[in-house]
């Protein structure tokens, strides 16, 4: 792992989308630095640029200009395969709609990122998956298929999948948007607990004000610019 205390550094990142013939700016020159172990929420209204910011940090979208360093690596210069490898080893993703594979059971879903990680030998898979499932308290559901689980349980599986490869950074785009308020709080509690226990950096987007109160650092984004 890179010795730098910053896991994420964004310098003057700009991104716009084409809407017919018009360029619609989503990010208008973003500068952010995220330290290791931070638990940060990106907040803002719909269309403010939260998801675009997370996508660029997660190397699943490219900025039009600017610099993006993930764990000291300038990702804008990487080819597709290198970015795939970086995502696999350094970044975990939690999606709003969970995105579990319905034909794989919980254990197999969590194991997915490990299967393509050459740094993790097969002999370690079971321990890592079991530990991740224990950490999110669903180890008893390992054999279940996703459609046998509740929404909260599915999101726990998604969190376990994000953590199984021991990434330095976990990105979560509106992780509680599809959950009721009780489950939303539980998920945030869980993420906080994992942040404290594993020291993983969490960056997630939300527009739920109740959740914002639980988070130490906010990045307020509006019209493609950081406000606070």
């Amino acid at each position: 792992m890179n010795a730098s205390p910053a896991i994420i550094q964004l310098k003057d990142v700009k991104k716009s989308y084409k809407l017919g013939e018009t360029d619609v700016p989503a990010l208008k020159g973003i500068n952010i630095e995220l330290k290791r172990g931070e638990f940060t929420a990106v907040v803002g209204a719909s269309g403010s640029g939260k998801s675009t910011l997370l996508n660029i940090v997660g190397c699943i979208d490219d900025p039009d200009s600017g610099s993006v360093l993930v764990d000291g690596v300038e990702v804008t210069k990487l080819d597709d395969d290198s970015k795939s490898a970086l995502r696999n080893r350094k970044i975990g993703f939690i999606f709003q709609s969970f995105n579990l594979v319905p034909v794989l059971n919980v254990y197999e879903n969590v194991e997915l990122p490990l299967l393509i990680n050459p740094d993790i030998p097969r002999s370690e898979h079971q321990d890592r998956v079991s530990q991740a499932l224990k950490d999110v308290a669903i180890d008893h559901l390992a054999k279940n298929l996703p459609d046998q689980l509740s929404g909260g349980q599915r999101q726990r599986v998604a969190i376990a999948r994000a953590l199984a490869g021991s990434p330095a950074l976990v990105l979560a785009d509106e992780p509680t948007a599809n959950l009721d308020s009780v489950n939303s709080h539980r998920i945030i509690d869980l993420m906080l607990e994992l942040n404290a226990k594993r020291g993983v950096t969490f960056l997630f987007s939300t527009h739920d004000e109740k959740l914002m109160a639980r988070v130490s650092r906010h990045i307020q984004i509006a019209d493609g610019l950081i406000k606070a």
Binding site: G58, I60, D80, D81, R89, G92, F95, N99, P113, R161
Partner: peptide, 16 residues
């Protein structure tokens, strides 16, 4: 396609 996106996000390349 969303599932493909998930796989790509967690590190599976287009070839895989």
């Amino acid at each position: 396609s969303q599932e493909v996106g998930m796989f790509r996000s967690i590190g599976y390349n287009s070839k895989t």
